[in-house]
Amino acid sequence: MGVQAALEWAFRIEKAQLELPEPPDPERGPGVGFGLEYVLMQRAALGCKVDGGQYKMGDYTHEDAEVIAATVAGMPDSLGGRRMAIRVAELARAGLTPDWMPGAVPRCVPVDTRENQHGVRAATDVVGTERVLSRGKWRMIEILACPVTFSPHPHQIEAAHRAYDDWWAALGWIRDGLIAGGILRDVEVTNVMPKERPWGKG
């Protein structure tokens, strides 16, 4: 299965838990302990799963799902670290892909509207006055303008595209790690990935 399907299986079906490493304690100096990779390699060498655990006392979580969750938890800081690991797990648990705002096009719209018996109209502001000759008399009239904005703003669309790109890169890292690690027993992760930059042409 592709990496997105594998993540959804692990977090949604098997309900694997994302056990993130504790942040380093500045008072105690660098932490001493075993990394997730070491634990997974030792488990693979042992050929069995150690009983017990912090979560799921009565329920069984497939060990391949735990390996996938542990891989996600090891997300490097260059790809978003803990925050991206949590985002990937949450999206997989919900069976979702990041919202890259498909079909969104910035449109020029009024900042404010007012409604009366004639319908909805753009709100206007007085931006000045002008003296004009009307029917032989000089009169002062107000100059009105309609403040506008773009919705959705181009920056919002760009931010959504960037967030999708970051998620896609994180999935690529997880896929490569799972394939290279070769620790999965029953699940085979393929090179299949979600569409890269789905908003692009072609």
Rank of each mutant, 00 (worst) to 15 (best):
E8V: 13
Y55H: 13
W173R: 00
M57I: 07
L184M: 08
G182M: 08
Q156D: 15
G136P: 01
P76H: 02
I143E: 07
A180N: 14
V105A: 06
H155F: 11
D25A: 02
A92F: 04
L144M: 15
L171A: 00
L36C: 01
V126F: 01
G182V: 03
P21W: 02
R121M: 12
Q4V: 12
R83W: 01
H153R: 02
G2K: 08
H62E: 07
P102N: 02
P24A: 12
E37N: 12
Q156Y: 06
C108S: 10
M1K: 07
A170I: 05
R139M: 13
S134L: 13
P24D: 10
A145K: 09
Q4C: 09
A104W: 03
G128N: 04
Y55F: 13
V148K: 10
T97N: 05
D166E: 15
K15D: 15
E130Y: 06
T129W: 09
K49S: 12
R121I: 11
R28M: 13
M193S: 09
Q17S: 15
L91R: 01
H155S: 15
D99R: 08
A159L: 12
L178D: 03
P110Y: 00
T61N: 03
I86M: 10
V111T: 13
F34V: 12
M57H: 08
G172I: 02
R175M: 06
A85I: 03
G2I: 01
V187F: 07
I183A: 11
T149S: 13
P26A: 03
E27I: 14
R28H: 11
E19F: 10
G202A: 15
V3G: 01
S78H: 01
F11C: 05
Q42R: 13
R87M: 09
Y164V: 01
A44C: 07
Q42T: 10
A180W: 09
V50M: 14
Q4E: 13
V132S: 06
E115M: 11
E130T: 06
V192A: 15
D64L: 00
G81T: 10
E90K: 09
V67A: 03
L7T: 00
A10V: 07
A104C: 05
E115D: 09
I143K: 14
A70L: 02
A170C: 08
V109N: 08
E63A: 05
W138Y: 15
E90V: 08
C48N: 08
A169K: 11
P194C: 12
R114M: 05
G136I: 06
R87P: 01
L133T: 11
E14R: 01
W138C: 01
T129S: 10
A85H: 00
R185V: 12
V39T: 12
W138F: 14
D166F: 04
A65K: 01
